[in-house]
Design a protein around this nucleic acid. Sequence first.
DNA 1: ATTAAAAAAGCAAACGTTTGCGTAAAATTT
DNA 2: AAATTTTACGCAAACGTTTGCTTTTTTAAT
Lengths: 345, 345
Amino acid sequence: MPGSRVTIKDLAKRMNLSVSTISRALHNHPSIGEKTTRDVWKLAEQLGYFPNTVASNLRRRKTNMIGVIVPRIDIAFHSHVISGVEEVAYKMGYNVTIYQSGDSFEREVAITTILQTNMVAGIIACLALETRDCSHFARFNNLKVPLVFYDRVSNELEASKVIIDDFDAALRVTQHLINIGCRRIAHIAGCQTTSIFADRLEGYKAALHRNDLNFDPNLVCCANDLSYEEGSRCARKLLKLASIPDGIFCANDYTAIGAIQVIKKANLKIPEDIAIAGFSNYPVSTIIEPTLTTIDDRAAEMGKTAARMLIRQIEERDVNVASETIVLRTDLIVRDSTRREAIIP
Amino acid sequence: MPGSRVTIKDLAKRMNLSVSTISRALHNHPSIGEKTTRDVWKLAEQLGYFPNTVASNLRRRKTNMIGVIVPRIDIAFHSHVISGVEEVAYKMGYNVTIYQSGDSFEREVAITTILQTNMVAGIIACLALETRDCSHFARFNNLKVPLVFYDRVSNELEASKVIIDDFDAALRVTQHLINIGCRRIAHIAGCQTTSIFADRLEGYKAALHRNDLNFDPNLVCCANDLSYEEGSRCARKLLKLASIPDGIFCANDYTAIGAIQVIKKANLKIPEDIAIAGFSNYPVSTIIEPTLTTIDDRAAEMGKTAARMLIRQIEERDVNVASETIVLRTDLIVRDSTRREAIIP
DNA sequence: ATTAAAAAAGCAAACGTTTGCGTAAAATTT
DNA sequence: AAATTTTACGCAAACGTTTGCTTTTTTAAT
């Protein structure tokens, strides 16, 4: 911090006042005379005084820094979450510092250490895919620094969470496929050790069951990294089945797009032969042809909610609420990839 | 910063050593005995000591914080830049704090103030679209905090920059359109008060001139916000001309995609009737049909380069170099939207 | 055995704020 | 006019490190 040239002491000297008076004046403390306060502000302005937040943080024993841990920043979902976090943090006078775990457990642990030494006021995190054990987050419980997880959360840890109801969303999207007449519905699933993807599979199963449709394990294909390529691979596999599906629910939009491209190349019509639905409402879902039916995961909203929860906990006088879970409403967005003449509207 | 329970003082008391010895031991200072150093580390480990970075920052009068100002985080280009910045910053022991200007001048100014009070070690910024006057950045020159701009840079300010050669890239992409046989090439341009977009227009003009093609102002359409919608609007306008273009160079991929959709709806073939090229190599450019020829703007590389430059300047012993400009190589990526039987390869 | 040099550790003052407590002066009440 | 309250400000100790300088102890050289 090269800078902070003029300090509170300089102001004090110039005005023949004590540093405490200056400090209080700059905070508009009532015990300082109105005229004095005005004069202090004026001089501060003149001399180009800027408070030293670092010193203030040290003395107050708290920072205004919110630490955010994301798997990767350049994934659309996370960048939208961060954007939401930053927006409300800024308005509430907090700063945001960001770390990428790269889905590595080791790095996630290292980051928590950095956050601790940096004395962040609170933490917002999405667990790395590799993470099984969350004990490195436990320290923040003792340290009384609030923690809120989003999207990929830990169940073994007492902490606040903001998530979407993946089960319900998957159920609704599958039900939608059924409503438009699909009877052999496949699922391109995500990594099943991650709860959100397991929930999506369960929601899919529940919808089938509710409609007296068989669950056929051959129709579920696991896409490890949820990429276009994995989507294509799974689609190719599904098309090789003796009896191919007439609808596919994909665990995210990328795999859905991979599937769409394979299906189109196979000269099958979407949605007539096979209807496709994705998950997340990535920008490309409006670009792909046909445009993609999907679930809006409301990423920015998730970020805002997480930030609001966290800040409330940081500033909480009333320490009653230990943790809180918010489930965000999701929206099914119907587009051309499932727009058939509906059997049931 | 609720936390930092055990301090250096506690260690000192326990070991009957002075705090200075502890501090030095923890930094492996040579003037502390090997055994002592080992013991101090061991005890620190045992008691769960964590350094208080805030206190350290105050005393050392510098932080390890890099402030990043972006227009918006949820724009793919910027999230990739940030990702690059974070990656090298993390490796070099720096933290990254992020602010969104929302392309608002007022907010950009407010953010610079926050960065100053937070004593950041250096700043990486992409100017807000609204910004004309950069004097709010000038203070960092006096304060000796290094500043590097990326993408949208200021020419009126002595500061380091990392940019791509927009003129050259535009020239090459236009030349490519000419090479495949286009003779009436339109340009969907960005806001001309921003230098990168002005440069792209100039590059386009230069390519025409170099090939003895007329520059026709009617073939240039300005898309204010570079959105799909603006791209569509411009395309519609171009298709209403008495003699429509046979190629369009768009100032970014979004407008290109908007244009593609309008052109396809008009039952014109891409690239046969009209060839299209975009700019930035957004992920969707591989998804859209036809896949889009574009310029790879190497966003992550830009972030990494900016971070490396900044950190070098922060740690610079040799203060000779006041500012530096790095121009990144760009790549023309040819895809189906310009894949004709080439006249000139 | 004395002196010189090197090694190991301590003292105390910073860094720039914030804040509990104390006190003088001014205003108010008896 | 004395006693009391209120108002406005000062003192000084924190917050947890780092660091220039000094002091003590050990080792090496004479």
